[in-house]
Design a protein around this nucleic acid. Sequence first.
RNA 1: GCGGGGGUUCCCGAGUGGUCAAAGGGGCCAGCCUGAGGCGCUGGUGGCGCAGGCCUACGCGGGUUCGAAUCCCGUCCCCCGCACCA
Length: 969
Amino acid sequence: MGIPLDLEDFRKIEKKWQKKWLEARIFEPKILENKEKFFLTVPYPYTNGPLHIGHGRTYTLGDIIARYKRLADYNVLFPMAFHITGTPIAAISDRIKRGEQAEISKYRHYLSLYEKDPEKIEHILKSFEDPINVAVYFAERIHVDFTALGYSIDWRRKFHTGEGIYNKFIEWQYMKLKEKNLLKRGTHYVTYCLLHKQPEGEDDIKDADIEPVEILEFVAIKFQFEDGYILASTLRPETIFGATNLWANPNVKYLKIRWNNEILYISKDALVKFQHQYDNVEVIEELDGTYFVGKFTKTPLDAEIIILPADFVDPDNATGFVYSEPSDAPYDFAALEDVKKHPEELQKYGIDPEFVRKIEPIKIIDMPNVKGHHAEKVIREMGIVSQTDVKLEEATKKVYKEQYYDGVMNEKAGQFAGVPVKEAKEKVKEWLLKNNKAIIFYETSRKAICRAGGKIIVAKIKDQWFIDYSPDWWKDETRKWLDQMLIYPSKYKKLFYDTVDWLHERPCARRRGLGTRLPFDKTWIIESLSDSTIYMAFYTIAHILRKYKIKPEQLKPSIFDYIFLNKGNLDNLSLDTGIPKEAITEMKREFEYWYPVDQRHTGIPHISNHLTFFIMHHIAIFDKKDWPKMITLNDMVIAEGAKMSKSKGNVILLRDIAEKYSADLFRLFVCSAADLDGILDWREKEVANVKSRLIRFATLALKAANVEIPADFGEHIIDRWLLSRFNKRLKMAKEQMEKMAFRDFTINMFFEFLKEIAYYERRTSTERMLGAIRRILEPWIITLSPVIPHITEEIWEKLGNTGFVSLAKWPEYNENLIDERSEILEDAIRNSLKDVNEILKAMRKTQAKIITIVIADDWKRSLLEKVKDISKRESLKMNIIMKEVMKDPDFRKLGKTVSSIINKIMRDPSLLPKIHVTLEEEMNLFTNAKEFLERELSCKVRIVKESDVKNNPKAKAALPLKPGIIIEF
RNA sequence: GCGGGGGUUCCCGAGUGGUCAAAGGGGCCAGCCUGAGGCGCUGGUGGCGCAGGCCUACGCGGGUUCGAAUCCCGUCCCCCGCACCA
């Protein structure tokens, strides 16, 4: 390794220490009863591919916490496992099996990041047709990537969620939930793929990540027609009171069907949706749209209305019929105007145009500032003239938004008169349903297809399993517990309370994917957010299960009851399961020692689901002493100012870090570039800057490790200044780490201190600077080791230490070395330098010939002391101070000068020196700094007493610690 | 829509009543270093000022205060979460 260092050297050092840590097993903690434990977890990653730096930020911060806590003398457990539960991995295998080229080349690319041999890649790719192989392969790669980042993880405890032993644990969890009556069954609606004949979510639907597909609840209102009912769908059932006509599309096919002993009319496209939402549907006959046009139908309010033709009616949206409410629906208003303008169109269908002309909108909603028809008003304002105008969409939103807040149903709405629109919508719906005047019809918020091209509709799932998060006792306990939990950044705490408030039934199992089957209904598989809520407990026993080679079938629920809930009898258990008593006892001890989770660290999006479930499941299942204590969160990572996404091709993978950058560089960047609650922007330019600082640090530290501390170190002001700065920083560092202010910490302890070292070097010499670093090097690298563990281990070793810096003790700052006086004195020199530069700038000069530093007279010192004295008891008012000061005859002699000095101080009280410095002392201070000033200003510098300068106004301006400056050119 | 967060100097971003023209980084400008350097170091980067100073600034409009980027009211704009997705 040469100096200067490059990233290649860093990577070598990193590998070296990763190997040593592993060999020495230093991150595999044992139970130490006399040491306080700290159990930290970060959610296990989902193993459907390589992780990127967004994940890396979260795990890195987790590791930094673990490493800090270790230095702070905790017995730290930081474990990791892998999540393979759910549909995405299964879907990947399906797609590869189906031969989808996009997916195959994506995974071929991922494999090429880890495998060099093309034949091997193809072989592994083939194996991916079985989802477990995908899961296990990437779990192993992520393990490698995490190791390459220097994470201090206890890998003995790793597992994945598809393992038999884990399944048994989850089964136990679900039996507990069932015992507590927290599992329910019921009807549930999902997005469903007609091609694959299965529910498919965002992951499977084309472009759903960009434009999500929502499930909309239409009210399909029954309009009596011939021997049955036409179903006309709406999102605003309260408008039924203003229905003036029905719209049917004359160019599409409709169906007459029988359901629930009634005849219904819907569009042909609606049939398949209807069949997925209602059972026993029978098709009677197909009809053209023209069949309906011109005929009459009756609203649920018994009003006779006509069916008019309209091209805008989409047969593939809901039931394919809509009713017209032109007063409040801009589409309807525009369409009605259109048909009135084209009587010939109506005559085609044998409709009397005169009849249509008489159709008038019915105003049913009163608005404070709308006299006539709200839809008409907005249409006129926006200049909309036809039913095909794209602005109608916006008009609809505008009307709806305004009415939702300010609208009130009027007398036309019968029993709902006076009800605000906001409430009427729900009430009218209930009323219609109750009286069998309508049914609910679900539809997607937009047309959607799956990634293989299958049509997505909304389908009903029968007997869906839910976790019911709504019981009051559960929510109350959770809120109470949240009161005392620590959440960082604290601004997110409210989001937890809000989540608890609106959480209710949540589906917890699916028909497909990987995972654990519900123990009491094996046709269901527990989904991923439901099998990841209390698994941190499993870390405490996973390695013991392996040690004793315990089989899944031995893990009866009673075993977990005993270990986690302290229930049951050891002898019986051992007999019953065949697990040795010592194994059971060991697991119980591990659990009781390590639990609860002291801190869980993850990303912000987890708050409203995973983290809240995590808290609630602990509360439901475990004793209070085992409930989690603290949660910390970090925001996302973007690259060069843009969100990382596969489509943009700007995703930076953790693999790239290990191969192209360096672990310490990544860690330092992650720490320093943003606070926990800030978005971290990965910019190559900034990374390069951090890189050069890291190299400078390493270079200096490695050099300094080989030098002696100068014998006279500490005698000079500048030495004491540096020691003082360092110890102050050390003091702050601890506070910052405790507050999880990692960014502040790195800026304080790394970047800013490096700057001060640079100043020290300028002020003294390179050799002396290295000696000074040597003086503080050991505590310095210990504090930095959580962030940059590899290079600090290397320096630690160079210092002749055995052991590991990772296991060192966090250094205490030394109060005695905090030396305000030296800092103030050194600041005087730095300020004088600044003043000179400012003067030169104002004079537009860059170079002086000779600069004279004039040290203030003694009488000024006593004057300012006096003023300081007065200011302690009196307010700083000119007249008061002058009166006091002038009592002294010595000052009275210098009347005018004194008043001008005091005047100055009135304007800028910071001119009052914080300490008393004698003339001699200040002369010495500046004389000792003379060479430095000459070097900095590259000109001759003289230090003189004010009394030695005759009649120079600049000399007279001198104040204690703010010398007069005379510049000659 | 509901809930949450936020708008700071060219950019990112600290700053919660005076010590703020406002930390830190990026960009840009100048100088130094160097065989060379898109490395590194130093200084500058709102306006004005041939002596260390003055003036104007923290989304917009008001207000409280001796004093506001910081507190209050109104207003405009941006971002995030809202459930089956891990």
